[in-house]
Amino acid sequence: MSGIDDCLRQAMTIPGAIGASVVDYTTGFALAWAGNAPTGDPDASAAGSSDVIHAAINRAPFASTRPNDLVEDVVITTHGGYHLLRMIRTDFDSRLLLYVWLDRHEGNLAVAQRRIRILADDLVAA
């Protein structure tokens, strides 16, 4: 029984987490956020992460032709950090992703990826 705020609070407990947000990628809008955003602007990071997701889900190599082989997450690695974008799949119509920004030296990518998958699933688990 976790809500959006719970989900973001838990995302912030992932080792190395700097910021987390739930983003509507139709419009590139942060519905909710916690912690810091790159460049200090949650709107800009929401717009940026939406562009990345659009690129991933609309391009032939990733939008696979096999049914239900959908994009689950996108990881961007920079010198100092990891940016994790996880699709939140709801049964009802929505286009949402969970975005988490991690410090590269404090964070562990595999651990974070696993935690974020569980968080995104729990948020909407039936």
């Binding site: 809500g3 959006i4 989900c7 509507d24 809008f29 519905l31 709801t90 929505s94 948020l123």
Partner: peptide, 21 residues
């Protein structure tokens, strides 16, 4: 809906937020 287990709290929040915007 949440108490009866038809929806999770997260789903309800996301659905309502989306509908409001």
């Amino acid at each position: 809906l949440v108490q009866q287990g038809h929806l999770t709290h997260g789903e309800l929040e996301l659905c309502v937020l989306g509908a409001i915007y």
